[in-house]
Amino acid sequence: MGKKRRGHADIEEILGRPWCYYCERDFEDLKLLISHQKAKHFKCDRCGRRLNTAGGLSVHLNQVHKENLDHVENALPNRQGLEVEIFGMEGIPTEVLESHRNRLIQNFYQAQEDRRIATGNPLPGQAKEPRKKIKIETAEELKTRLREWRARRKEILANGGSLESMMKSAQQQAAPAPVPAPAQQQQHYPGQQQVPPQGHFYGQAPEGIPARPPSGPPGVAGLPQRPGGDNIDQLIRMAEAGVKPAAEPEKASKKDKKGRMFYDDAEISPEERMAKLPRYAFTAA
């Protein structure tokens, strides 16, 4: 099979690769997978013999070395069990196959999306559909907008409104034109939310606000504003990658998860404790 263009395999190719149930590594072909399993997971650590299955190794250990196999070596924590009989791709439980497949598909699209964002190139097969049209105002349109703005300024000044609020609304109006860079957009979001309703012209203001990127799920909007301000690119990327904002605190709490200590005295050693027991006491003569 020849190498694909750009070195990115397509999804069928990825899904077709044999992979190891015990460690989730994938291989070029089944033969390699089987020799991997024999070397990494079914090898007897007493005599180096490579067995075909975990069951085979268990029997070998039992008969030759009088030992019991209680887990498969080098396996992922939840895959160490001996209950499943694995040989190559045979014997993998359906639900494990399914979740592996789903994970591959998800990873594949995420990688594709990451590449798209990193390179700016459209997805394969979607090249004709431009992602965003740059809006260029004609001189006529610009003039119309200027006229509208002047009319509104007049109105506000006549009604006793402040010039400051006028400027704010003007900024909002100006935002979409002519080429809004993503970073600029982001800067306006927080400001906008903080602007209190100002008189009757408030109703007009939203017209000029650029729509949020449609790709963002509602979750992203709920993200707290972090100090330092992350740019919108990152938010979008997170949203596209399916990272839910809730994942962050969850991760932190996992890290905080303290195990219970079997012995937790930071000053006195277990031996000193034992030495105090009457059983071991010694009184110097």
């Binding site: 998860k257 303290k258 195990g259 219970r260 200590m261 079997f262 012995y263 277990p270």
Partner: peptide, 15 residues
């Protein structure tokens, strides 16, 4: 030298 606690809540940390 840590083992999952029998009640499934975190690990037991051994010396």
């Amino acid at each position: 030298h840590r083992q999952p606690a029998p009640d499934g809540d975190g690990d037991i940390v051994y010396p």
